[in-house]
Design a protein around this nucleic acid. Structure first.
Lengths: 187, 187
DNA sequence: AAAACCATGTAAGATGTTACATGATTAA
DNA sequence: TTAATCATGTAACATCTTACATGGTTTT
């Protein structure tokens, strides 16, 4: 892959509404959480690059109170680039489950440690499920069912079902671990 | 995070049996596929580093036929480091679902494109599920149920349920997309 | 004869994180 | 008064990928 995906995350978000770097950060964190993540060190330089390439424009907003905001808007060229990217096949998923790494090598640790890892994982995924669920409810409550809402809903549904599966796995794994730790019965 | 996770993947694998860089690459690809991935450019330099730090040792194996192999074995210090890492909390999962990015912004593309993305995703996950299933069967068929097998099984179970959930989502999403694309009935 | 596998490795560049600098405003 | 939120950004570093170099062996 030659193309930097960060660019397209930004273009995608800006294709909906003008946003500042700060807004983008927040949106990615709250709405794209389990899908993709971006840090400041990627957002601001990429925004600069996009502007240089004429894919977005920036408008400085000075307000009486608070810091100035630089609101970014996508240009027609930007929309063109986004569409071009959307039409190409997606790269396969990249997952980094550090917890599974620790579980896989679990024979080198004690059961409590392993159990703790799984519980943490469960907590994270329970939260994620609740967030996604809340998000779906918000979509349902929308006065108008837009195209945007339809596609966002699709993504939310995957988030829901993966986090649900993860929580269920955690429960199973915890039970298995407990049984595994019990002294063997012999007669 | 200051600690490079790559190191611990290698230490974990070597805690089970001595391996060459090439073996590690294959093992990660076939067995750790959806959990973590490593490229040659990470494996070989990290192996060198581990040796320098006394966490592994290398033994050069010259054979009459074929290239020489450098078989790496973990040292006691290496085991110590691994255990230390295992006892610490895992970092939260990192996921990069490029496909969901493309779906979320799907209103900028046509239905066929979006449908294609979902189908590709389904294909990938169907394959993954089959691999995991096969893997579980292999574990069941093992003459002896070791500690190693127990923990590997836990990881495989998560892989199975996530890929299953993904395939199911793909089916739902495809149906929703089709309905969405149908002309509205009015009367 | 070609392709795939065995096997080790490096260099250049792309990508990403962390920590910091700056400083006002608002909520607890 | 402390913490959080708003807001933009950079520098140094850490991490990771891609493409290549090398060359033998085995399978198709």
């Amino acid at each position: 892959m030659k193309e930097n995906t960060t660019k397209f995350v930004l273009l995608g978000l800006l294709s909906r509404r003008p946003l500042t770097g700060y807004d983008i950060k927040k949106t990615v964190k709250t709405r794209l959480d389990y899908i993709w993540d971006l840090s400041n060190g990627q957002i601001y330089p990429t925004l600069k690059l996009l502007e240089k390439n004429g894919l977005i424009t920036k408008k400085i907003e000075t307000r009486e109170s608070g810091p100035t905001r630089k609101v970014c808007s996508i240009t027609n060229r930007g929309i063109g680039k986004l569409k071009e990217w959307l039409s190409k096949s997606a790269h396969p998923e990249i997952n980094r489950y550090e917890i599974l790494l620790k579980i896989i090598f679990g024979e080198q640790a004690n059961i409590d440690t392993n159990s703790k890892h799984i519980q943490d994982f469960k907590t994270r995924n329970t939260k994620l499920f609740e967030t996604m669920n809340q998000f779906e409810n918000n979509l349902d409550a929308l006065p108008e069912q837009t195209e945007e809402a339809f596609y966002v809903r699709l993504a939310v549904l995957l988030g829901k079902s993966i986090s649900k599966a993860s929580v269920e796995w955690a429960d199973t794994a915890l039970t298995m671990l407990q049984k595994h730790g019990e002294p063997k019965i012999r007669r």
